[in-house]
Design a protein around this nucleic acid. Structure first.
Length: 431
RNA sequence: UCCCCGGUAGCUCAAUUGGCAGAGUAGGUGACUGUUAAUCACUUGGUUGUUGGUUCAAGUCCAACCCGGGGAGCCA
């Protein structure tokens, strides 16, 4: 007899079924055992009655340790008294592998303990829900890119040098005396790909060796980076906006139960429909000052400033045209105001901060060369990148979206470490 | 790199001016009317992060170190 998945039990009402999974919880009295079976697709209550079972077998079932793997034979019944509305009336319970005393209990645990037990923590309800949402976010991105005709072009993980010359990178030995670095962005490679395929994206891991210790930082995180040829800053903002709306809609539609487990206020997410407010850096600074938060034009917005700006709106807000000094060398300056660069940051609501950064790229060879010198970078390192401006340069742009930060916001989680299966952080690389 | 907080039973935490190391939970034993983190009774469980110091006496005070958490900067 083939095995039934818990998620399909409702369709099997009245039928004999075989389930395989792990013992999630048990509630016992003299005449019954209520076993909660978890199989990865869901959790179902199974009832074992003393009257219908061999006395010794009944007592043994009361002793099966939590998280033991078990097989249950029985009949599926719709029953309102059971959580989930279905119950399996078990006639046979077999232990596949008896578990040792399981360290994670139903009570609350501290972050240190949970992170050290991440391989087991991943089994718990809340973590399962977050991973479902992550899965949906990644699928929504890929589906939308496919529908819009973007080509998926995977960027390399090993790179010969820093992409932007700014962040601290992880250095690794690369044969003989050479050094390589783990990528901190696929963007430069996406620019090359955009000149080959038009509209492209990459979606993969990214590494930052910054010693950041906050709820928004990981040393290894996933980033989605689309890049478009023949595109300006407005096109970039339009794509960022439509993508965030698409992701949110998909999560609301397909992750109802997960959002419930996480006690996420879905009404807040339903407001994410677009258009999002677009605020220039200068406008943002003006309003900050008008509201009594002294801020001098020219500096980069800090975490506090971003929190204030996003608190003005219920949806993500796009802040564009930053002072060019605080932005990367490849960012194009605004032809109408050379003091600012054509970049945009998208700030998520509810204080989740920056989830997207991007903009229009500099497409003039001369300007780009000058910028590389200003930033004291070696033009040799960027020879291939400069070639893109030699052979049919076009206006182009794109952005990077932090997958964990996006999941964190949608799921309403405190810390990005719960939004990736096995987080890598400063001082923590186990398990 | 800087600032703040913490480390006591497997886990979550308590312990008064320095004065016998405690509870809940998990584990064990038993009871129990279809239970919903089931409930009830009993019960096992300790080198208080490490090292040194002050003291008749240190979980508590002092010093150094180790580990972790939160935040800043930087960024997604």
């Amino acid at each position: 007899m083939s095995r039934t998945r818990v998620r399909d039990l409702l369709k099997s009402n009245g039928e004999d079924v075989v389930l395989r999974g792990w013992l999630y919880n048990r509630r016992s009295s003299k005449k019954f055992h209520f076993l909660l079976l978890r199989d990865g697709s869901g959790i179902v209550q199974c009832i074992v009655t003393r009257a219908e079972m061999d006395e010794e077998a009944f007592l043994e079932i009361g002793k099966i340790p939590y998280e033991s793997s078990i097989e249950i034979h029985g009949k599926a019944n719709a029953d309102e008294r059971s959580p989930g509305g279905v119950e399996v009336h078990a006639t046979k319970v077999e232990v596949i592998s008896e578990a040792e005393e399981y360290p994670i209990s139903k009570q609350e645990h501290g972050p240190d303990f949970l992170l050290s037990n991440r391989h087991l923590w991943l089994r718990s309800k809340k973590q399962v829900a977050v991973m479902h949402i992550r899965n949906e976010v990644l699928r929504a991105i890929r589906d939308d890119m496919y529908e819009q005709g973007f080509q998926c072009i995977d960027a390399p993980i090993f790179t010969p040098n820093s992409c932007e010359g700014t962040s601290t990178l992880f250095e690794v030995d690369y044969f003989d005396d050479d050094k390589a670095y783990l990528t901190q962005s696929g963007q430069l490679y996406m620019e090359a790909a955009a000149m080959a395929f038009g509209d492209v994206y990459c979606l993969g891991p990214t590494f930052r060796a910054e010693k950041s210790k906050t709820r928004r930082h990981l040393t290894e995180f996933w980033m989605f980076e689309p890049e478009m040829a023949f595109a300006d800053l407005d096109d970039v903002m339009n794509l960022a906006e439509s993508m965030l709306c698409k992701i949110t809609t998909r999560v609301i539609e397909n992750c109802k139960e997960d959002l419930e487990v996480l006690e996420r206020d879905v009404d807040i997410l339903k407001k994410i429909t677009g258009p999002f407010p677009r605020l220039s850096y200068s406008e943002a600074v003006e309003r900050l000052n008008a509201e009594g938060h002294a801020f001098e034009w020219g500096g980069d917005l800090g975490a506090k400033d971003e929190a204030i700006i996003s608190s003005w709106f219920d949806t993500p807000v796009m802040v564009h045209r930053y002072p060019q000094e605080v932005k990367a060398f490849y960012m194009k300056r605004d032809p109408e105001d050379s003091k600012v660069a054509l970049g945009v940051d998208v700030l998520a609501p509810e204080g989740y901060g920056e989830i997207i950064g991007g903009g229009q790229r500099e497409d003039s060879l001369e300007t780009l060369l000058g910028r590389i010198h200003e930033h004291e970078l070696d033009p040799e390192d960027f020879a291939w990148y400069l070639d893109l401006r030699r052979y049919g340069s076009v206006p182009h742009g794109g952005f990077g979206l932090g997958v964990e930060r996006t999941v964190c916001w949608l799921a309403g989680i405190e810390h990005v470490r719960e939004c990736v299966p096995f987080p890598r952080m400063l001082y923590r690389i186990y398990p």
